[in-house]
Nucleic acid binder design. Structure first.
Length: 581
RNA sequence: CGGGGUGUAGCGCAGUCUGGUAGCGCACAUGGUUUGGGACCAUGGUGUCGGAGGUUCAAAUCCUCUCACCCCGACCA
């Protein structure tokens, strides 16, 4: 490829619209351009990267026995109504109407369509298992698209769906996908961590996410892992136990119930204020948070030093919509300002408490009266608990729920893939069944598996860059080599550069030649910016000695070699780079 | 949806408070000098000032409405 004939619109300045480094670099280096919020054009270099990634995905999927298909983007609303997701997915679902006023959906995932596809056609357990996948554009009406391709409204995704006759077979299918995913990301140059995750609107029994660990702001997800065993989970799933509960006496061993008393706490609303005022540790306080779950008010209780995890709360309540109640509703319910809510005497609401609460004795709560708190409150004696559940957010340093010995640590990650154990949620709701060995009709056991293609590309940039630009892993670099004649006006330089270029092309090497009549600085900077792994500099300095320079992107060292040997040398270097992945 | 902010040349921005010829840098075009890390000189082209309405002799500037985009939060298959 000649640079002069390729659309690579690099910028001198960082774009104002981008926030994180990978987004800035993709725009500056001429890989992507925004059309509208969360929607991007992929320019030639980007398209090449995406093809590299999809090829890797395709190879590994095919190896695992999956079959590639292509399903429609446009779905009838009816299917989504049958599965229930017309309601549960809510506003993220991109909806539209046709000229007959029929509701349609722009697919953001294809469980409904794929289930419908095999329904009635796969009738026997003998035809199972089946794994179908596609690589296709997906639509999600994100509330706030951001970070370029990280959270777009339109993006490329590989999605796969498995159908099995029984749990045993399903577990094998699931493991195959997990193995394939580790291979896919590894081949893309990305180490990933597999973490337990919430199933969300997807439904099903369990789910995992594949995270690229980064230490930049691009890592949107907080993941927890144990420093002793292999436990790891994302923030919405991670559970933990509190070391304090075990260490400090009085929390687990029964204290004697003290008499409940009302104390005057003027203007002390926050945990911090009450803690200071009453000289009690935050662990002795209990927060009462009023939520609205599918329209009904719910009181959620949690220890003062913990944070509620709304995903966990939502799951525990089994509701679709969950939001903090507005202050008017709270005042009406508690007859007090927000900040003085408490469980004692609260009527007409479901009382859900975190699993730590039943172990607490003689704690402090709001009194449902302005400027008053209650001390020495005890559950069951002073108020009734309707439900106990883990509804708190895990914190770094807390105990591992799996091995009980290690402590939890945190990392920031970019979710590049996910896998869901769907069970029979979709096969049942859409009536997709087969006849099993025993002659009985049963719903398929399903799994679904996604890889964000565009997100993976950006995750690689977020992971591999320096102050000058992108440093692509060789396996997904748009091209391998950039030949840079320092001064294209110089006939010798030009001839040598083009000679190398021609020979490399004849050898099917992936090569770009910067044949632009630009000054050296511009070319060097652009070369670093677009981030091809190997640069071959042809300049006056060393040409006199019949030598050209080989420079690895991201490394400072430069190798000199006679121009006759550059082809072999380059091949060797690239082979070595490839071997790393 | 709530809070904050921005829309002026291809890109980055000034000008808006205090109404009076629409600017700067980069990029672009032509000519020349230069040529190993974002050159220099000269000349030149470039705008519905996001849109609509209003106030005014006069609006990028003031008022009303509206659209788009960005950030924080809620949300996230």
């Amino acid at each position: 490829m000649k640079w002069s004939e390729t659309y690579i619109p690099t910028l001198r300045e960082f774009p104002a619209e981008a926030e994180i480094i990978s987004h800035k670099l993709l725009i500056k280096a001429g890989y992507i351009r925004k059309l509208t919020s969360g929607v991007y054009n992929y320019l030639p270099l980007m398209q090449s990267v995406l093809l590299k990634i999809t090829n890797i995905v395709r190879e590994e999927m095919n190896k695992s026995g999956a079959q590639e298909i292509l399903m429609p983007v446009l779905h009838p609303a009816e299917l989504w109504q049958k599965s229930g997701r017309w309601e549960t997915v809510g506003k993220e679902l991109m909806r539209m109407r046709d000229r007959h006023q029929r509701d349609l959906v722009l697919g953001g995932t294809h469980e409904e369509v794929v289930t419908n596809l095999i329904k009635g056609e796969i009738r026997s357990y003998r035809q199972l298992p089946v794994n179908l996948y596609q690589i296709q554009t997906k639509f999600r009406d994100e509330i706030r698209p951001r970070f370029g391709l990280m959270r777009g409204r339109e993006f490329l995704m590989k999605d796969a769906y498995t159908f099995d006759a029984n749990e045993k077979s399903f577990n094998i299918s699931y493991q195959k996908m997990v193995d394939a995913y580790f291979k896919i990301f590894k081949r893309c140059g990305l180490e990933t961590k597999m973490v337990e995750s919430d199933t969300g609107a997807m439904g099903g029994k369990a789910a995992h996410e594949f995270m690229v660990i980064v230490d930049t702001e691009g890592g949107e997800n907080i993941i927890f892992y144990c420093d002793r065993c292999d436990y790891s989970a994302n923030i919405d799933k991670a559970s933990s136990f509190d070391l304090k509960e075990i260490k400090s006496e009085g929390f687990t061993e029964k204290e004697t119930f003290k008499k409940m008393e009302k104390v005057h706490t003027p203007d002390k609303k926050t945990i911090e204020e009450v803690t200071l005022f009453l000289n009690q540790p935050p662990e002795k306080l209990v927060k009462t948070l009023i939520y609205r779950a599918d329209g009904n008010l719910v009181a959620a209780l949690i220890r003062g030093d913990k944070e509620i995890n709304e995903v966990k709360l939502k799951n525990a309540l089994g509701c679709i919509q969950l939001e903090m109640a507005d202050s008017e509703s709270i005042k009406k319910l508690t007859k007090a300002e927000v900040g003085f809510s408490g469980p004692v005497g609260l009527k007409g609401v479901k009382m859900i408490v975190d699993e730590q609460i039943p172990n607490l004795f003689n704690f402090v709560t709001g009194a449902n009266q302005n400027d008053y708190h209650l001390v020495n409150v005890n559950s069951e004696r002073d108020f009734k608990i309707d439900q106990v559940a883990d509804i708190k957010t895990a914190k770094e340093g807390e105990g591992c729920p799996k091995c009980k010995k290690g402590r939890l640590k945190t990392d920031r990650g970019i979710e590049v893939g996910n896998t869901f154990m769907l069970g029979t949620k979709y096969s049942q709701s859409l009536g997709a069944t087969f006849i099993d060995k025993d002659g009985k009709e049963k719903p398929f056991i399903m799994g679904s598996y996604g890889v964000g293609i565009t997100r993976t590309a950006q995750a690689a940039v977020e992971k591999y860059h320096d102050e000058k630009g992108i440093i692509w892993p060789v396996s997904i670099a748009p091209l391998h080599i950039n030949i840079l004649p320092v001064n294209i006006q110089d006939q010798t330089q030009k001839n040598v550069a083009f000679d190398i270029y021609q020979r490399m092309k004849e050898n099917k090497m992936e090569v770009l030649i910067d044949d632009r009549d630009e000054r050296a600085g511009v070319k060097f900077n652009d070369s670093d910016l677009i981030g091809l792994p190997l640069r071959i500099t042809v300049g006056e300095k060393y040409l006199k000695k019949k030598k050209v320079e080989l420079t690895l992107r991201g490394k400072n060292e430069t190798l000199f070699c006679p121009k006759e040997e550059v082809l072999e040398k380059s091949k060797k270097i690239l082979e070595k780079l490839k071997a790393v992945f």
